[in-house]
C-alpha cells in the first residue's frame, strides 16, 4: 500500500513537471517568431508534426514504414493543386491533402500490414517509389518543376496568410492540434491496444484482437497526420515539389524520430528541430548536408539508441529510482 502511494505521488509530481514543461514550450513557440526567422520556424513545425505522425506508427505500434514521404509529399501536391488550379481556400486545400494522404495510407497499409519487420519496410518503400514515379510522370505535378506559386490566400476568408505572423500562428495552431491528436490517440483505449500489439503481437491475437485491423487503422491515422504536415508545408512555402516524395524524405523522418527518441512524445519534435536547424546552418557553408546527417545517424545508433529525449528520460528515471531507493533504505 505504501509503495502504491509513493508511486502515485511520484507519478503526480512528474506529470506536474511535464505539464509545466509543455506550457513553457508553448510559450516559447508563441514568442519565437520575434527572435527567429519565421519561415525556418514553420519548416521546423511542419517537419516536427510529420515526425510525430511517423512516430505514432514506429514508436507506439512498432511498425517501421519506409514510405512516409508518399503521404507528406502527396498531400503537398493535392493541396497545392487544389489551391492553385481550382482556387480552393487554404483550409479546403489542406483538408483535401489530409483526406488524400489517408486514402494513400489505406492502400499502402492494406498491402504492407500483412508482412512484418524488414518485409513491411520493403513493401512500403516499393509502393512509395511507385508513387514517386507516378509524380514524375503525372501532368498535374509538373514533373521536375513542381507546382510553383501557390497562393496562401485567406484562412476562412478572414485571416490574411500572407502576413508573416498570421501564417506563423496558423501553422503553430495546426501543429499543436496535430500533436494533441497524436497524444490523445496514444493515450486512449485504442492506443493501449496498439501498445499491446507492439509489446507482444501473438498475445494480442490470442486475446481476440484482429491485429491487422488495428495496424491498418494506425497506419491510416499516421498517414493522414503526415499529410496534414505536408499540406501545411505546401501553403507555407507556396510550392510542392518532387523532393517531398523521394525516399530520402522517408529516410529523413526516420532519422529525426530516431535522433529525438522513438516512442517519446517530444523526441520527434526535438529531432526534427535539430535536423532542420542543422540543414539550415549548413546550407550556406557548402558542407554536404548528407554527410552530416549520415554521421549523426551512425552516432545515434552506436551511442544513444534511445535518442536525445529518450536518453534524458531514462537517466532522469534512473536517478529518481536510486534516490527513492536510498530514502527507503536510510
Amino acid at each position: 500500500m505504501a509503495e502504491t502511494t509513493l508511486r502515485n505521488g511520484r507519478a503526480r509530481s512528474s506529470s506536474r513537471l511535464e505539464q509545466g514543461l509543455v506550457v513553457l514550450g508553448i510559450l516559447a513557440l508563441l514568442a519565437a517568431p520575434f527572435f527567429v526567422y519565421p519561415i525556418l520556424l514553420m519548416k521546423m513545425l511542419c517537419f516536427a508534426l510529420f515526425a510525430c505522425a511517423f512516430n505514432l506508427l514506429l514508436g507506439y505500434t512498432g511498425l517501421l514504414s519506409f514510405g512516409h514521404a508518399t503521404f507528406f509529399g502527396g498531400a503537398a501536391y493535392f493541396c497545392a493543386h487544389a489551391v492553385k488550379v481550382w482556387g480552393w481556400p487554404p483550409e479546403a486545400g489542406i483538408l483535401l491533402g489530409v483526406v488524400g494522404a489517408a486514402g494513400l495510407g489505406l492502400v499502402m497499409g492494406f498491402f504492407a500490414i500483412r508482412r512484418q519487420g524488414i518485409y513491411f519496410a520493403m513493401i512500403t518503400l516499393a509502393l512509395a517509389q511507385m508513387f514517386y514515379f507516378f509524380c514524375v510522370q503525372a501532368p498535374f505535378t509538373h514533373g521536375e518543376d513542381g507546382i510553383q506559386g501557390v497562393p496562401r490566400g485567406f484562412l476562412f476568408s478572414l485571416l490574411d496568410l500572407n502576413q508573416p505572423l498570421n501564417i506563423y500562428y496558423f501553422v503553430l495552431a495546426v501543429f499543436l492540434a496535430g500533436v494533441f491528436a497524436i497524444w490523445r490517440i496514444v493515450n486512449s483505449p485504442f492506443g493501449m491496444i496498439l501498445r499491446s500489439i507492439r509489446e507482444n503481437e501473438n498475445r494480442a491475437v490470442s486475446l481476440g484482437y484482429s491485429v491487422a485491423n488495428y495496424k491498418l487503422a494506425a497506419f491510416v491515422m499516421s498517414a493522414a497526420l503526415s499529410g496534414l504536415a505536408g499540406a501545411v508545408k505546401a501553403i507555407v512555402f507556396q510550392f510542392a515539389t518532387l523532393t517531398d516524395v523521394t525516399w530520402q524524405m522517408s529516410g529523413e523522418v526516420i532519422l529525426m524520430t530516431l535522433l529525438g527518441g522513438i516512442g517519446t512524445m517530444v523526441g520527434p519534435i526535438v529531432g526534427a528541430g535539430l535536423v532542420v536547424g542543422l540543414e539550415n546552418a549548413l546550407a550556406t557553408s557548402g558542407f554536404p548536408v548528407m554527410i552530416a546527417t549520415g554521421v549523426i545517424f551512425m552516432a545515434c545508433v552506436l551511442l544513444f539508441r534511445r535518442g536525445i529525449v529518450g536518453e534524458i528520460q531514462a537517466r532522469w528515471n534512473a536517478r529518481r529510482e536510486s534516490r527513492s531507493g536510498n530514502k527507503a533504505h536510510g
Binding site: R184, S188, P189, F190, G191, M192, I193, Y214, A217, M221
Partner: peptide, 12 residues
Amino acid sequence: LSTQFWRPLSAL
C-alpha cells in the same frame, strides 16, 4: 472499448 481513439485512458 478497444477502438475508441478519441477518449482518454481514464475511460478504462
